[in-house]
Design a protein around this nucleic acid. Structure first.
Length: 367
RNA sequence: CGGGAUGUAGUUCAGUCCGGUUAGAAUGCCUGGUUUGGGACCAGGUGGUCGAAGGUUCGAAUCCUUUCAUCCCGACCA
Protein backbone atom coordinates (compact mmCIF):
# COMPACT_ATOMS: atom_id res chain seq x y z
CA UNK A 1 0.00 0.00 0.00
CA UNK A 2 1.68 3.13 -1.16
CA UNK A 3 -0.47 5.41 0.86
CA UNK A 4 -1.96 4.91 4.27
CA UNK A 5 -5.64 5.21 4.75
CA UNK A 6 -5.72 8.65 6.15
CA UNK A 7 -8.75 8.45 8.32
CA UNK A 8 -9.27 4.97 9.76
CA UNK A 9 -8.13 4.76 13.37
CA UNK A 10 -5.51 2.07 13.88
CA UNK A 11 -6.41 -0.97 15.94
CA UNK A 12 -3.44 -0.41 18.20
CA UNK A 13 -4.55 3.15 18.96
CA UNK A 14 -8.15 2.47 19.86
CA UNK A 15 -9.62 -0.86 18.97
CA UNK A 16 -13.24 -0.06 19.61
CA UNK A 17 -13.02 3.24 17.72
CA UNK A 18 -11.41 1.37 14.83
CA UNK A 19 -14.38 -0.98 14.80
CA UNK A 20 -16.99 1.77 14.92
CA UNK A 21 -15.34 3.71 12.11
CA UNK A 22 -14.81 0.67 9.95
CA UNK A 23 -18.47 -0.35 10.05
CA UNK A 24 -19.44 3.10 8.80
CA UNK A 25 -16.60 3.62 6.29
CA UNK A 26 -17.06 0.18 4.75
CA UNK A 27 -20.68 1.18 4.17
CA UNK A 28 -22.10 -1.69 6.22
CA UNK A 29 -24.38 0.20 8.59
CA UNK A 30 -25.07 3.50 10.26
CA UNK A 31 -26.73 4.79 13.39
CA UNK A 32 -30.49 5.29 13.18
CA UNK A 33 -32.27 8.24 14.79
CA UNK A 34 -33.50 5.95 17.56
CA UNK A 35 -30.85 5.14 20.10
CA UNK A 36 -29.44 1.66 19.78
CA UNK A 37 -30.99 1.04 16.40
CA UNK A 38 -29.10 0.76 13.16
CA UNK A 39 -29.69 1.08 9.47
CA UNK A 40 -28.10 -1.89 7.73
CA UNK A 41 -26.94 -0.53 4.39
CA UNK A 42 -27.13 -2.53 1.14
CA UNK A 43 -23.48 -3.61 1.25
CA UNK A 44 -23.81 -4.83 4.82
CA UNK A 45 -27.17 -6.41 4.22
CA UNK A 46 -25.79 -8.33 1.25
CA UNK A 47 -23.38 -10.07 3.63
CA UNK A 48 -26.20 -10.80 6.06
CA UNK A 49 -28.27 -12.24 3.21
CA UNK A 50 -25.48 -14.66 2.35
CA UNK A 51 -25.19 -15.68 5.99
CA UNK A 52 -28.95 -16.11 6.12
CA UNK A 53 -29.19 -18.14 2.94
CA UNK A 54 -26.40 -20.51 3.88
CA UNK A 55 -27.69 -21.08 7.38
CA UNK A 56 -31.23 -21.51 6.17
CA UNK A 57 -30.08 -24.27 3.83
CA UNK A 58 -28.32 -25.96 6.72
CA UNK A 59 -31.43 -25.78 8.87
CA UNK A 60 -33.53 -27.30 6.10
CA UNK A 61 -30.94 -30.05 5.60
CA UNK A 62 -31.26 -30.92 9.27
CA UNK A 63 -35.03 -31.23 8.99
CA UNK A 64 -36.23 -27.83 10.13
CA UNK A 65 -38.98 -25.70 8.61
CA UNK A 66 -39.59 -21.97 8.78
CA UNK A 67 -42.59 -20.28 10.35
CA UNK A 68 -43.37 -16.86 11.69
CA UNK A 69 -44.67 -15.81 15.08
CA UNK A 70 -45.85 -12.32 16.04
CA UNK A 71 -43.75 -9.37 17.15
CA UNK A 72 -45.98 -8.50 20.10
CA UNK A 73 -46.38 -10.71 23.13
CA UNK A 74 -48.98 -10.29 25.88
CA UNK A 75 -47.22 -9.11 29.00
CA UNK A 76 -48.63 -11.94 31.08
CA UNK A 77 -46.85 -14.54 28.91
CA UNK A 78 -43.49 -13.27 29.99
CA UNK A 79 -44.20 -13.89 33.65
CA UNK A 80 -45.20 -17.52 33.12
CA UNK A 81 -41.69 -18.89 33.32
CA UNK A 82 -40.05 -17.55 36.47
CA UNK A 83 -36.40 -17.54 35.43
CA UNK A 84 -37.27 -16.27 31.99
CA UNK A 85 -38.98 -13.16 33.33
CA UNK A 86 -36.09 -12.60 35.70
CA UNK A 87 -33.68 -12.62 32.77
CA UNK A 88 -35.61 -10.55 30.26
CA UNK A 89 -38.13 -8.35 32.01
CA UNK A 90 -35.77 -5.47 32.62
CA UNK A 91 -34.82 -4.81 29.05
CA UNK A 92 -38.10 -4.95 27.17
CA UNK A 93 -39.92 -2.33 25.15
CA UNK A 94 -43.58 -2.12 26.14
CA UNK A 95 -46.55 -1.13 24.01
CA UNK A 96 -49.09 0.64 26.17
CA UNK A 97 -51.33 2.48 23.69
CA UNK A 98 -52.68 1.86 20.23
CA UNK A 99 -53.47 5.35 18.96
CA UNK A 100 -52.05 8.83 18.56
CA UNK A 101 -53.96 12.07 18.17
CA UNK A 102 -53.19 15.67 17.26
CA UNK A 103 -52.10 17.81 20.18
CA UNK A 104 -54.53 20.60 20.95
CA UNK A 105 -51.79 23.22 20.97
CA UNK A 106 -50.75 22.13 17.48
CA UNK A 107 -47.37 20.87 18.62
CA UNK A 108 -47.70 17.57 16.79
CA UNK A 109 -49.09 14.21 17.78
CA UNK A 110 -49.47 12.89 21.30
CA UNK A 111 -50.44 9.53 22.73
CA UNK A 112 -54.19 9.33 23.01
CA UNK A 113 -54.84 8.58 26.70
CA UNK A 114 -58.18 7.05 25.72
CA UNK A 115 -56.35 4.40 23.71
CA UNK A 116 -54.70 2.64 26.60
CA UNK A 117 -54.37 -1.11 26.18
CA UNK A 118 -56.04 -3.30 28.74
CA UNK A 119 -53.12 -5.68 28.70
CA UNK A 120 -49.80 -4.18 27.74
CA UNK A 121 -47.81 -5.83 24.97
CA UNK A 122 -44.12 -6.60 24.94
CA UNK A 123 -41.98 -6.24 21.85
CA UNK A 124 -40.40 -9.70 21.73
CA UNK A 125 -36.91 -9.95 23.23
CA UNK A 126 -37.06 -13.62 22.17
CA UNK A 127 -40.05 -15.74 21.28
CA UNK A 128 -40.13 -18.76 23.60
CA UNK A 129 -43.27 -17.59 25.37
CA UNK A 130 -45.44 -16.84 22.36
CA UNK A 131 -44.21 -19.97 20.62
CA UNK A 132 -44.89 -22.30 23.53
CA UNK A 133 -48.29 -20.74 24.01
CA UNK A 134 -48.88 -21.71 20.38
CA UNK A 135 -47.31 -25.16 20.62
CA UNK A 136 -49.84 -25.97 23.34
CA UNK A 137 -52.44 -26.09 20.58
CA UNK A 138 -50.27 -27.97 18.16
CA UNK A 139 -49.19 -30.84 20.39
CA UNK A 140 -51.54 -33.55 21.64
CA UNK A 141 -49.82 -36.82 20.93
CA UNK A 142 -46.35 -38.24 20.55
CA UNK A 143 -47.27 -38.45 16.85
CA UNK A 144 -47.17 -34.61 16.71
CA UNK A 145 -43.53 -34.64 17.76
CA UNK A 146 -40.94 -33.55 17.09
CA UNK A 147 -41.71 -30.00 15.97
CA UNK A 148 -38.65 -28.47 14.35
CA UNK A 149 -39.46 -24.82 13.63
CA UNK A 150 -37.24 -21.89 12.89
CA UNK A 151 -38.10 -18.26 12.35
CA UNK A 152 -36.16 -15.35 10.87
CA UNK A 153 -37.17 -12.25 12.73
CA UNK A 154 -36.25 -9.05 14.45
CA UNK A 155 -36.23 -8.82 18.22
CA UNK A 156 -35.69 -5.97 20.62
CA UNK A 157 -33.77 -5.69 23.85
CA UNK A 158 -33.34 -2.30 25.44
CA UNK A 159 -29.59 -2.48 25.75
CA UNK A 160 -27.74 0.04 27.86
CA UNK A 161 -24.69 0.32 25.67
CA UNK A 162 -25.37 -0.45 22.03
CA UNK A 163 -22.74 -0.95 19.32
CA UNK A 164 -23.40 -1.47 15.64
CA UNK A 165 -23.95 -5.18 14.94
CA UNK A 166 -22.44 -6.33 18.25
CA UNK A 167 -25.21 -5.13 20.49
CA UNK A 168 -28.11 -3.18 19.03
CA UNK A 169 -31.49 -2.65 20.62
CA UNK A 170 -33.23 -4.12 17.62
CA UNK A 171 -31.42 -6.89 15.85
CA UNK A 172 -32.10 -9.50 13.20
CA UNK A 173 -31.69 -13.15 13.98
CA UNK A 174 -33.08 -16.59 13.56
CA UNK A 175 -34.52 -18.53 16.45
CA UNK A 176 -35.13 -22.23 16.28
CA UNK A 177 -37.71 -23.66 18.64
CA UNK A 178 -38.07 -27.39 18.81
CA UNK A 179 -40.32 -29.71 20.77
CA UNK A 180 -39.42 -33.33 21.53
CA UNK A 181 -40.87 -36.39 23.19
CA UNK A 182 -37.74 -37.29 25.12
CA UNK A 183 -35.02 -35.60 27.05
CA UNK A 184 -32.33 -37.41 25.05
CA UNK A 185 -33.72 -36.25 21.74
CA UNK A 186 -33.93 -32.62 22.88
CA UNK A 187 -30.40 -32.63 24.28
CA UNK A 188 -29.15 -34.15 21.08
CA UNK A 189 -30.91 -31.43 19.07
CA UNK A 190 -29.35 -28.67 21.16
CA UNK A 191 -25.88 -30.11 20.67
CA UNK A 192 -26.47 -30.73 16.99
CA UNK A 193 -27.38 -27.09 16.35
CA UNK A 194 -24.32 -25.92 18.23
CA UNK A 195 -22.36 -28.03 15.78
CA UNK A 196 -24.24 -26.60 12.79
CA UNK A 197 -23.36 -23.12 14.01
CA UNK A 198 -19.73 -24.01 14.60
CA UNK A 199 -19.42 -25.57 11.15
CA UNK A 200 -20.94 -22.51 9.53
CA UNK A 201 -18.87 -19.95 11.39
CA UNK A 202 -15.65 -21.83 10.78
CA UNK A 203 -16.42 -23.05 7.27
CA UNK A 204 -18.04 -19.98 5.75
CA UNK A 205 -17.01 -17.07 7.90
CA UNK A 206 -13.54 -18.54 8.39
CA UNK A 207 -13.72 -17.58 12.05
CA UNK A 208 -12.41 -20.15 14.53
CA UNK A 209 -14.67 -20.77 17.51
CA UNK A 210 -14.50 -22.51 20.84
CA UNK A 211 -17.44 -24.80 21.54
CA UNK A 212 -18.52 -24.81 25.14
CA UNK A 213 -21.24 -24.83 27.75
CA UNK A 214 -22.25 -21.68 29.58
CA UNK A 215 -21.80 -21.40 33.32
CA UNK A 216 -24.88 -21.17 35.48
CA UNK A 217 -24.74 -17.37 35.61
CA UNK A 218 -24.35 -17.00 31.84
CA UNK A 219 -26.96 -19.55 30.94
CA UNK A 220 -30.07 -18.48 29.02
CA UNK A 221 -32.89 -17.50 31.33
CA UNK A 222 -35.02 -20.62 31.55
CA UNK A 223 -32.54 -23.14 30.14
CA UNK A 224 -31.03 -26.20 31.80
CA UNK A 225 -27.98 -26.01 29.57
CA UNK A 226 -26.71 -23.44 27.12
CA UNK A 227 -24.29 -24.62 24.47
CA UNK A 228 -22.27 -21.81 23.00
CA UNK A 229 -19.75 -21.03 20.31
CA UNK A 230 -17.35 -18.21 21.09
CA UNK A 231 -14.98 -16.42 18.76
CA UNK A 232 -12.22 -14.01 19.64
CA UNK A 233 -11.74 -10.35 18.89
CA UNK A 234 -8.34 -8.89 18.11
CA UNK A 235 -8.15 -7.16 21.45
CA UNK A 236 -8.31 -10.54 23.14
CA UNK A 237 -11.92 -10.74 24.18
CA UNK A 238 -14.31 -13.61 23.67
CA UNK A 239 -17.42 -12.92 21.65
CA UNK A 240 -20.50 -15.08 21.98
CA UNK A 241 -21.46 -15.96 18.41
CA UNK A 242 -24.32 -18.35 18.83
CA UNK A 243 -26.14 -20.28 21.52
CA UNK A 244 -28.22 -23.41 21.60
CA UNK A 245 -30.31 -24.08 24.66
CA UNK A 246 -31.60 -27.27 26.16
CA UNK A 247 -34.73 -25.95 27.87
CA UNK A 248 -35.80 -29.15 29.59
CA UNK A 249 -39.52 -29.10 30.37
CA UNK A 250 -39.50 -25.57 31.78
CA UNK A 251 -41.51 -23.92 29.04
CA UNK A 252 -43.77 -26.92 28.56
CA UNK A 253 -44.66 -26.73 32.24
CA UNK A 254 -45.07 -22.94 32.18
CA UNK A 255 -47.42 -23.14 29.19
CA UNK A 256 -48.90 -26.52 30.03
CA UNK A 257 -47.81 -28.33 26.91
CA UNK A 258 -48.34 -32.07 27.42
CA UNK A 259 -48.63 -34.98 25.04
CA UNK A 260 -49.87 -38.54 25.31
CA UNK A 261 -46.98 -40.93 24.91
CA UNK A 262 -46.96 -44.43 23.46
CA UNK A 263 -47.88 -45.85 26.87
CA UNK A 264 -50.97 -43.63 26.82
CA UNK A 265 -49.63 -41.41 29.61
CA UNK A 266 -49.51 -37.60 29.77
CA UNK A 267 -46.02 -36.16 29.72
CA UNK A 268 -44.50 -32.70 29.40
CA UNK A 269 -42.72 -31.86 26.16
CA UNK A 270 -38.96 -31.36 26.00
CA UNK A 271 -37.66 -28.21 24.33
CA UNK A 272 -34.70 -26.50 22.73
CA UNK A 273 -34.12 -23.08 21.28
CA UNK A 274 -31.14 -21.80 19.37
CA UNK A 275 -30.16 -18.60 17.64
CA UNK A 276 -27.58 -16.55 15.83
CA UNK A 277 -27.95 -12.88 15.05
CA UNK A 278 -26.54 -9.96 13.12
CA UNK A 279 -23.85 -10.05 15.76
CA UNK A 280 -22.20 -12.56 13.44
CA UNK A 281 -21.44 -9.55 11.27
CA UNK A 282 -19.57 -8.07 14.19
CA UNK A 283 -17.68 -11.29 14.75
CA UNK A 284 -16.72 -11.37 11.10
CA UNK A 285 -15.37 -7.82 11.15
CA UNK A 286 -13.60 -8.32 14.48
CA UNK A 287 -11.88 -11.51 13.38
CA UNK A 288 -10.36 -10.62 10.04
CA UNK A 289 -10.27 -6.91 9.34
CA UNK A 290 -7.19 -4.76 9.69
CA UNK A 291 -5.95 -1.18 9.67
CA UNK A 292 -6.58 -0.97 5.93
CA UNK A 293 -10.22 -1.92 6.19
CA UNK A 294 -12.58 -4.81 5.99
CA UNK A 295 -11.33 -8.29 5.12
CA UNK A 296 -14.10 -10.57 3.88
CA UNK A 297 -13.96 -14.29 3.26
CA UNK A 298 -14.74 -14.92 -0.45
CA UNK A 299 -17.76 -17.09 0.38
CA UNK A 300 -19.53 -14.19 2.05
CA UNK A 301 -18.21 -11.22 0.08
CA UNK A 302 -21.00 -9.44 -1.83
CA UNK A 303 -18.44 -8.51 -4.46
CA UNK A 304 -15.77 -11.17 -4.86
CA UNK A 305 -13.84 -9.59 -7.70
CA UNK A 306 -13.66 -5.97 -8.76
CA UNK A 307 -12.01 -4.80 -11.96
CA UNK A 308 -10.93 -1.19 -12.33
CA UNK A 309 -10.12 0.11 -15.82
CA UNK A 310 -7.14 2.41 -16.33
CA UNK A 311 -7.44 4.53 -19.45
CA UNK A 312 -6.47 7.78 -21.10
CA UNK A 313 -9.47 8.41 -23.28
CA UNK A 314 -12.82 7.08 -24.38
CA UNK A 315 -11.24 4.92 -27.06
CA UNK A 316 -9.04 3.16 -24.50
CA UNK A 317 -12.02 2.59 -22.27
CA UNK A 318 -14.06 1.08 -25.10
CA UNK A 319 -11.27 -1.38 -25.89
CA UNK A 320 -10.78 -2.30 -22.24
CA UNK A 321 -14.50 -2.69 -21.66
CA UNK A 322 -14.82 -5.04 -24.61
CA UNK A 323 -12.18 -7.35 -23.17
CA UNK A 324 -13.37 -7.06 -19.61
CA UNK A 325 -16.96 -7.85 -20.57
CA UNK A 326 -15.98 -11.30 -21.82
CA UNK A 327 -13.93 -11.85 -18.68
CA UNK A 328 -16.86 -10.80 -16.49
CA UNK A 329 -19.17 -13.19 -18.34
CA UNK A 330 -16.72 -16.05 -17.88
CA UNK A 331 -16.39 -15.39 -14.15
CA UNK A 332 -20.13 -15.07 -13.71
CA UNK A 333 -20.61 -18.46 -15.32
CA UNK A 334 -18.39 -19.87 -12.59
CA UNK A 335 -20.69 -18.33 -10.00
CA UNK A 336 -18.29 -15.57 -9.04
CA UNK A 337 -19.75 -12.15 -8.36
CA UNK A 338 -17.75 -9.59 -10.30
CA UNK A 339 -18.03 -5.85 -10.46
CA UNK A 340 -16.55 -3.90 -13.33
CA UNK A 341 -16.26 -0.37 -12.02
CA UNK A 342 -16.02 1.89 -15.05
CA UNK A 343 -17.56 4.88 -13.29
CA UNK A 344 -15.82 7.94 -14.72
CA UNK A 345 -16.43 10.25 -11.79
CA UNK A 346 -13.89 8.52 -9.55
CA UNK A 347 -10.24 8.07 -10.30
CA UNK A 348 -8.59 4.65 -10.07
CA UNK A 349 -6.72 5.54 -6.89
CA UNK A 350 -9.95 6.36 -5.15
CA UNK A 351 -11.49 3.09 -6.26
CA UNK A 352 -8.52 1.00 -5.10
CA UNK A 353 -8.70 2.57 -1.68
CA UNK A 354 -12.46 2.31 -1.49
CA UNK A 355 -12.62 -1.36 -2.40
CA UNK A 356 -9.86 -2.09 0.04
CA UNK A 357 -11.85 -0.53 2.86
CA UNK A 358 -14.82 -2.58 1.70
CA UNK A 359 -12.80 -5.77 1.76
CA UNK A 360 -13.37 -6.98 -1.80
CA UNK A 361 -11.23 -10.15 -1.88
CA UNK A 362 -9.79 -9.72 -5.40
CA UNK A 363 -9.03 -6.21 -6.59
CA UNK A 364 -7.35 -5.82 -9.93
CA UNK A 365 -6.80 -3.16 -12.50
CA UNK A 366 -7.19 -3.64 -16.20
CA UNK A 367 -4.46 -1.89 -18.22
C1' C B 1 -27.96 2.60 36.33
C1' G B 2 -22.81 4.81 38.20
C1' G B 3 -18.11 7.70 36.34
C1' G B 4 -16.10 10.90 32.31
C1' A B 5 -16.67 13.77 27.84
C1' U B 6 -19.29 16.14 23.88
C1' G B 7 -23.47 18.68 21.18
C1' U B 8 -21.74 24.65 15.88
C1' A B 9 -22.72 23.20 7.65
C1' G B 10 -24.20 16.39 4.95
C1' U B 11 -19.32 14.86 7.76
C1' U B 12 -14.92 16.08 11.00
C1' C B 13 -13.98 20.15 13.84
C1' A B 14 -12.22 25.63 15.34
C1' G B 15 -14.59 29.68 17.90
C1' U B 16 -17.09 29.31 24.19
C1' C B 17 -12.50 30.43 29.36
C1' C B 18 -12.55 36.66 28.59
C1' G B 19 -20.34 38.28 25.29
C1' G B 20 -19.54 42.82 20.42
C1' U B 21 -19.80 43.67 12.51
C1' U B 22 -22.81 39.50 8.08
C1' A B 23 -20.43 32.47 12.72
C1' G B 24 -15.33 30.07 10.25
C1' A B 25 -12.07 25.96 8.19
C1' A B 26 -11.36 21.32 5.98
C1' U B 27 -13.97 17.75 3.55
C1' G B 28 -18.49 16.55 0.89
C1' C B 29 -22.07 18.22 -2.72
C1' C B 30 -23.23 21.29 -7.53
C1' U B 31 -21.21 23.88 -12.27
C1' G B 32 -17.18 24.50 -15.82
C1' G B 33 -12.36 23.09 -17.32
C1' U B 34 -7.88 20.25 -17.05
C1' U B 35 -6.93 15.27 -15.43
C1' U B 36 -7.14 9.65 -14.80
C1' G B 37 -1.28 3.19 -12.95
C1' G B 38 -3.11 4.00 -5.09
C1' G B 39 -7.99 8.54 -2.04
C1' A B 40 -6.41 14.63 -8.57
C1' C B 41 -6.06 20.06 -9.51
C1' C B 42 -7.91 25.12 -10.69
C1' A B 43 -12.03 28.53 -10.63
C1' G B 44 -16.86 29.54 -9.10
C1' G B 45 -21.05 28.03 -6.23
C1' U B 46 -24.30 25.36 -2.52
C1' G B 47 -24.74 24.50 2.35
C1' G B 48 -26.20 26.74 9.65
C1' U B 49 -33.32 27.42 13.89
C1' C B 50 -24.79 27.22 16.90
C1' G B 51 -29.12 20.22 20.43
C1' A B 52 -33.88 22.38 22.86
C1' A B 53 -36.46 25.68 26.35
C1' G B 54 -36.21 29.64 29.63
C1' G B 55 -33.27 33.64 31.85
C1' U B 56 -29.34 37.77 32.32
C1' U B 57 -27.87 41.80 28.83
C1' C B 58 -28.23 47.44 24.62
C1' G B 59 -26.27 42.84 22.49
C1' A B 60 -25.62 35.52 23.62
C1' A B 61 -22.73 29.98 19.83
C1' U B 62 -20.17 32.36 24.18
C1' C B 63 -22.75 33.79 30.87
C1' C B 64 -26.84 31.33 34.26
C1' U B 65 -30.88 27.54 34.98
C1' U B 66 -33.45 23.44 33.21
C1' U B 67 -33.82 19.69 29.75
C1' C B 68 -32.79 16.32 25.68
C1' A B 69 -29.35 13.54 22.99
C1' U B 70 -24.83 11.18 21.69
C1' C B 71 -19.93 9.00 22.60
C1' C B 72 -16.26 6.57 25.93
C1' C B 73 -15.22 3.52 30.61
C1' G B 74 -17.94 0.16 34.08
C1' A B 75 -22.45 -3.16 35.42
C1' C B 76 -26.03 -5.93 31.96
C1' C B 77 -26.58 -8.64 27.44
C1' A B 78 -27.31 -12.62 21.32
Amino acid sequence: MAKELKDLTKRSENYSQWYNELVVKADLAEQAPVRGCMVIKPYGYAIWEKIQRTLDDKFKETGHVNAYFPLLIPKSYLSREAEHVEGFAKECAVVTHYRLKNAEDGSGVIVDPAAKLEEELIVRPTSETIIWATYKNWIKSYRDLPILCNQWANVMRWEMRPRLFLRTAEFLWQEGHTAHATREEAEQEARRMQQVYADFVEGYMAVPVVRGVKSETERFAGALDTYTIESMTQDGKALQCGTSHFLGQNFAKAFDVQFINKENKLEYVWATSWGVSTRLMGALIMAHSDDNGLVLPPKLAPIQVVIVPIYKNEEDLAQISAKVDTLVEALKKKGISVKYDDADNKRPGFKFADYEVKGVPVRDHAP
